[in-house]
Design a protein around this nucleic acid. Structure first.
Lengths: 201, 201, 201, 201
DNA sequence: AATGAATGAGCGTTCATTCAT
DNA sequence: GATGAATGAACGCTCATTCAT
């Protein structure tokens, strides 16, 4: 009983895209060559151009489909919780989980994003906005419900959250993923909410 | 008694290094060419090789001297305060101020750091460690003095602080520096200490 | 009694050849790709290799059959006239008419001929010789009959005629065929015969 | 006493341009590679790009400077004669002489001109126009002075002359230059003026 | 017969680095 | 020290041709 056999074309497209992500993650985009990607994917150099317009396009497709899809999952994870604090926890948790599961994607997203505005600016901005919008909604709901401080500059709070999460991921990446990234979700959210100060402050 | 007369050599070295930082910041390291740097510095291509071993070395020197020096200033700023919370405030303030004053350095440091482990890994790790050590000291002192929560996982707290600051800088960079970066220091530190949760939590 | 039913194979052969001529005329031989020809012909790239040995062979076949056939018609047109001057007029007329009717062939023949000695040298020389022989016969007959000057260097006269006709065609091609090419036949022949000098010379 | 020592740059520019013309003449523009030109010129591949923007530019420069210059000489040759028929003779003579002296230029101009409108359209049109204008002037003067027929369609006469000359050159080229091209000038002009018809016509 | 995905040799171009002046 | 012309390795990309289906 065949439900969904991906056709050959899609298979090769994915093979190449994943090979590319692996190579990009290892060497950086500009240091990666088409020949390396082809070798990693087990195809000829020219084959890559049957599935991608050019080298830039490979990175673009990565941001357009692969990463985008992951970021959309974050929204779904959030929807599963009712109260803002659980939503935030779900967001951070699914973010860390997803990046832990696909280390190459994590590297590419963390280290290559800022540099490739030229290539995938719109996609990255779109994702970034989607992420920030989710956070905004959470904050606002939290403020209405009283579980989040009302005297906050929203723009700053968003950076505060995004930055903490990003840095936790970066640290994990630099440590070669030797610990459970996802396990950092709960302590991190707790920190975000309560801060580092003792109640004496 | 030595009067610090910089000799001609040092001047040209600095001219080139600053030109390179400008060019790297504008185009990224790998997209920048020696010819561009030479033009920006007003010297011949070959001259660059009298002061730097190769292209990589320029970036290495940037991290080795220029950035390192700035990061050392952070330590000095911290030393001026007595209590941990003021120390943290001074750290964040001097960090934001320094990066606001030298935008190119900020760009290079924020966007190129992760990618150049190959080139300047030791320097970057050294700086990073220095920065994290400062924070560690602050946290520990704060915990002893009671102004910082004692139930914190130190490794996480450090990322939490570093990440927030970085992201605030990134956001400022992406906004083309249209506002006072330094003005974000106090609200950010306040957030770090108190968190986003209302005391009701 | 054979009724000329072209079989399927011949049809496809012609479809491809005509598509190729169209593409070659538009882009030049070396700038045309097999993929373009295949698209224009409505077949797969690989199909072309069932009918032609390789890309060169397509051009070769063009000169071998298509153009050759047209050039043979010139001989027939000449045979319809008795006196040399009418023969010349018929030759030029049928030449201009044929090229006007098949613009792509005209382009290919005029602009690509000289460059493809490598590919179809023998065919082109053969056609060229055939054409020049027709002219030679006309001239010689005209000299015997007294309507053509006897003091002429035959080799030069042939170039003189061929060159004039070619250039008239080229001019028409460059003007995007906005006028009747065939209408130039009579004035041109008149020029060839009488020259540009007044009888006073 | 040094009057005009060409500097090194100009020398190498010319070396490369001449090597390129040689290679283009031998293989055609698109079949020639940068590597071939570099080898012929005795320089490295990259050196070519110090003097020319790209491969197209080499051909462009050829038409822009080298050929243009020769075509301007034609105008000067014409100016040396007073009566229209001598002017025409001088034009044809200097044309054939120049092309005989630089065979590669002749090949490139004759066989590559039509195909490279993309690359040097304006230059080629300019030269072509210059040439046709010279002829127009001659014809008109000749008609006023009575030595050229008044009942001529100027547009056709120009093609008639240009075409004859071109074809004479082509024939010489195809014969591998085994005879004196310039010696064809006088008989050709005589043909242009008197035509091939006997006065009996 | 017909397809079109796959191949990989080959090309134009760039640019870090060298070295004669 | 300073120059910048010259180098040539390396890369992205194209496309004629093949071959499994």
């Amino acid at each position: 009983m065949v439900i969904a056999t991906k056709n050959k074309s899609t298979e090769k497209y994915n093979t190449i895209l994943e090979a590319a992500v692996k190579v990009f993650a290892a060497n950086g985009f500009y240091q990666s060559t088409i020949a390396q990607i082809a070798r990693e994917a087990g195809v000829a150099d020219g084959t890559i151009y049957l599935y991608f317009k050019n080298k830039d396009d490979i990175l673009f497709q990565f941001f357009n489909y692969k990463t985008k899809q992951v970021f959309q999952q974050f929204g779904e994870a959030v929807a599963l919780a009712d109260n803002p604090i659980d939503k935030l926890r779900n967001l951070v948790r699914s973010h860390l989980k997803a990046f832990q599961q696909d280390r190459c994607m994590a590297i590419l997203y963390q280290t290559e994003t800022h540099k490739y505005k030229r290539i995938a600016d719109d996609r990255i901005k779109e994702m970034s906005k989607m992420y920030l919008d989710i956070i905004s909604d959470i904050i606002e709901q939290g403020q209405q419900e009283g579980c989040i401080r009302k005297d906050l500059y929203l723009g700053l709070v968003k950076r505060f959250i995004v930055g903490s999460v990003d840095e936790v991921i970066n640290t994990w990446l630099h440590a070669d993923g030797q610990y459970e990234l996802a396990s950092m979700a709960d302590p991190l959210v707790e920190l975000l909410i309560r801060g580092i100060g003792s109640s004496a402050n």
